[in-house]
Structure formats: structure tokens, C-alpha cells
């Protein structure tokens, strides 16, 4: 408890915070989460606490359920007919699977960046402005311009695109597209950003830029990132969770996970013995 208050005090220094951050130690808290794809039991009884304003990395071999679990957090799995989720996932203490929760509102609060950069086939400006527009975040054109500019600045893309905001978003390079997607997610002022292998389609230089960006975004957002790259998890995250065959093997500080993990499976995976 002491730890938590200190943590919070520290953060309120960094910037003004929303009510929930100061109240709880964990931003996202999952309890006994089970996910089924038809008959397949994809996630088995996962319990995890994710801290606010930090980067949590999910690692694990392919098909271990880390992406599935990530998509449960903003209920993107709802779009899959045969997918069924049990258990609680709470954001700021509110269960996102509560029947009263509208996934549309949830997704405004929990943004997402996907594996493959997927800008809309529209202009750069429209890509960023779309979210704020449907949520009614800007009343005037000037306000929208402001949101677009700050979002692009936060995504570190502003200097590269400020002169061609009406160029198609799909015309950017892969790395730029992914940062555009991050700007798009940031534009609706989410509290949590989920990233599903955001660098797997990028070259090392673009990857470095996105990682740098994640570092900066951490100050304001709670970030959960799924990655296949051990080095990336080590570089960007403070906490790391290891998944294997649908189970959460262990979850700890990243430093500890990569130097002295508790579980043999984590040790083996990090050493490259499987996966």
C-alpha cells in the first residue's frame, strides 16, 4: 500500500491525472478470465494486474493466447461469433464485460494498434480526425485541427507529414503508417493503448522509432504490448507477462523476468529453447 501511494505521488508530479489513476494501483485487473473459441479453450484462468502509466509486455510462443487476451481487454473479440469470454476484466474497477457496458464506449477509452499498419484509405488528416469526429470531441474545425496536430505530434509524425495532411495515409511508409495508427488511437484520448505486435511488419529503424514513441507515451497512457521479440519486451516494458498454452505462466518486473525468472518455461523461452 505504501508502495502504491508513493507511486501515485510520483506520477501526479509528472502530470495532472484522472481520478482513477490515483485511486487504484492497477489500471486493468483481470480475474479468472477464460476464453473459448467454440470448443477450444484458448485462455485458461488468467489473473493479472496491469499498472497504470507503464508498459506491460505480453510474451510467449505463437498461439499461446497473448493476442486473444489483449483483444479481450477492449472486447474486440466480440466481433468473432464463436468467441466466448468468462471472468472479469476491470478497468478502473469497472468490469468491461458488464452487460451495461457498450463496447463502443469502451474502445474509445481503450485504444488499439494492430499488427499490420491499417490506416483508412483516406487522407492523413481524415485518419486522425475520424475517431474524434464520431465521438464528438471537436465542435469546430479549429478544434479538430488542434486535435489532429497534437495527436500527430504525440505520435512523432507531425514533422514528417505536416505539409501533406491531405495526402493519402496509405501512401506513407510502413513505419509512418504505424505511427499514424498510433496517432489515430491517441486522438480519441484513450487511457489505455493496446498494441498487438506493432513492429512485426516494420524494419529495424521504424521499429526503433515506434519503441521510442512507446517510451514517451508511457507518461500519459497505460500501454499493453504483445511482442514476439524478447529484446523489444526488454527494451520497452516495465512489466512482462509470459503466456504459454493459454495460461499465464508468470508476470513480474521486466528486469527480473529477463534475468531471474521463477518459472522454468519462461527461462527456456527467453533462452530460445522453444517457441
Amino acid at each position: 500500500m505504501n508502495d502504491a501511494t508513493m507511486n501515485n505521488a510520483l506520477m501526479s508530479n509528472v502530470k495532472t491525472t484522472t481520478k482513477a489513476d490515483v485511486m487504484t494501483e492497477s489500471k486493468i485487473s483481470a480475474k479468472n478470465v477464460q476464453v473459448f473459441y467454440g470448443e477450444k479453450h484458448a485462455i485458461k484462468d488468467v489473473n493479472i494486474e496491469i499498472r497504470p502509466r507503464s508498459v506491460t509486455a505480453f510474451i510467449g510462443p505463437s498461439g499461446c493466447g497473448k493476442s486473444t487476451f489483449l483483444r479481450c481487454i477492449n472486447r474486440m473479440n466480440d466481433t468473432i461469433d464463436i468467441c466466448r469470454v468468462e471472468g472479469d476484466i476491470a478497468i478502473d474497477g469497472e468490469n468491461v464485460y458488464d452487460p451495461k457496458v457498450d463496447p463502443v464506449q469502451l474502445r474509445a477509452k481503450v485504444g488499439m494498434v494492430f499488427q499490420k499498419p491499417n490506416p483508412f484509405p483516406k487522407t492523413i488528416y481524415e485518419n486522425v480526425a475520424y475517431g474524434p469526429r464520431i465521438h464528438g470531441l471537436a465542435r469546430k474545425k479549429s478544434e479538430m485541427d488542434e486535435i489532429v496536430a497534437t495527436s500527430l505530434q504525440k505520435a512523432g509524425l507531425w514533422n514528417e507529414v505536416k505539409d501533406r495532411l491531405d495526402a493519402p495515409g496509405t501512401g506513407l511508409s510502413g513505419g509512418q503508417q504505424q505511427r499514424l495508427c498510433i496517432a489515430r488511437a491517441v486522438a480519441v484520448s484513450p487511457e489505455v493503448i493496446l498494441m498487438d505486435e506493432p513492429c512485426s511488419a516494420l524494419d529495424p529503424i521504424a521499429t526503433a522509432k515506434v519503441e521510442e514513441l512507446i517510451h514517451e507515451l508511457r507518461e500519459n497512457y497505460t500501454i499493453v504490448i504483445v511482442t514476439h521479440s524478447m529484446q523489444q519486451a526488454a527494451r520497452v516494458s516495465q512489466r512482462t507477462a509470459m503466456f504459454h498454452l493459454g495460461e499465464l505462466v508468470e508476470e513480474d518486473d521486466t528486469d527480473k523476468m529477463f534475468t531471474n525468472p521463477n518459472d522454468q518455461r519462461t527461462q527456456d523461452y527467453i533462452m530460445g529453447r522453444f517457441g
Binding site: 477492449n74 485504444g111 494492430f114 491499417n118 475520424y130 475517431g131 464520431i134 489515430r184 486522438a187
Partner: peptide
């Protein structure tokens, strides 16, 4: 491509919005 639907849903568009927009 489903990635477009995901992108729209991901920024909080409703299903109807993601389809029509």
C-alpha cells in the same frame, strides 16, 4: 480486408459506422 473493420472498431466506431464509413 478485415483490418479496416478492426481499425474502425478500434477507435470506437460502432458496427454501423464502421460499415457505412
Amino acid at each position: 480486408p478485415p483490418s479496416i473493420r478492426d481499425a474502425a472498431l478500434g477507435v470506437g466506431a460502432s458496427k454501423m459506422q464502421s460499415i457505412f464509413h
